[in-house]
């Protein structure tokens, strides 16, 4: 437990020292939202809630892939060996997943704020929408962390990251979009229990698998 806490703290300090990484991601979200806004601005009144919702999640998906992709590749080889000799792989993967979830929460929270500022906010049930953002942030972060670990071992890791992660993340994305749509329409929470439990169970499966499989990845 202590090990994980130290590792997360280390990630946060690293991020804080080299601010360009996080601010780069923030700028990425903001400019993507703005591009979407400008592209739609001529017909903003024709933007149906479904398009609004889908566009938001696609922006979040690309942000997630870009933000998490660097979680292994930004560290130098020597430093990875140093970690290898110090801590257990389980602690590393758990700390990376928690840290990436936090990053994703920040990014998608800020993204949601700006998006609803410029594109209007038709959400009926903000609480449920925020819950879907929370579940998606954790789910995306955990799938992408393991995939980033896999892709970082190969040479052309940027292409590989997209190719490997998009199909894997799709069921989660579809479930999230559906849950978010329910929130958008302001439906009762009992309607969405199916989606929430499915998302939670996918998250759980993915995190367990990452926990079990990462040690084998780490060794090479």
């Amino acid at each position: 437990m202590n090990e994980i806490k130290t590792l997360i703290w280390k990630e946060v300090t690293l991020e804080w020292r080299q601010k360009y990484a996080l601010s780069g991601m923030l700028l990425y979200v903001v400019s993507t939202v703005f591009v979407a806004y400008l592209s739609f601005s001529l017909r903003r009144n024709q933007l149906t809630p479904i398009v609004w919702n889908t566009l938001f999640w696609i922006i979040i998906l690309f942000t997630a892939v870009n933000a998490v992709a660097k979680s292994f590749s930004q560290e130098r080889y020597g430093r990875l060996i140093y970690y290898y000799s110090l801590c257990s792989p389980q602690a590393i993967i758990i700390s990376k997943i928690i840290y990436n979830s936090l990053i994703m929460l920040t990014l998608s929270g800020i993204g949601f704020g700006i998006y609803s500022l410029v594109m209007g906010n038709p959400v009926g049930d903000i609480g449920l929408y925020l819950l879907s953002i929370l579940l998606a942030a954790i789910g995306f972060a955990s799938v992408l962390t393991l995939v980033a670990g896999i892709a970082s071992k190969a040479d052309n890791s940027a292409t590989l990251m997209a190719v490997l992660s998009f199909p894997l993340i799709l069921p989660m994305l579809l479930m999230t979009i559906k849950l978010a749509k329910n929130a958008l329409d302001g439906l009762d929470w009992s309607v969405s229990t199916d989606e929430i439990t499915t998302l939670l169970s996918i998250d759980l499966i993915v995190i367990t698998l990452s926990y079990l499989l990462f040690p084998y990845l780490w060794r090479s």
Partner: peptide, 19 residues
């Protein structure tokens, strides 16, 4: 290296494929 990493991905992929 290929064998180890693609095995990890294969297991992960099957767990996503079934749902």
């Amino acid at each position: 290296r290929k064998a180890r990493i693609s095995s990890v991905y294969n297991i992960f992929a099957f767990a996503v494929f079934i749902p």
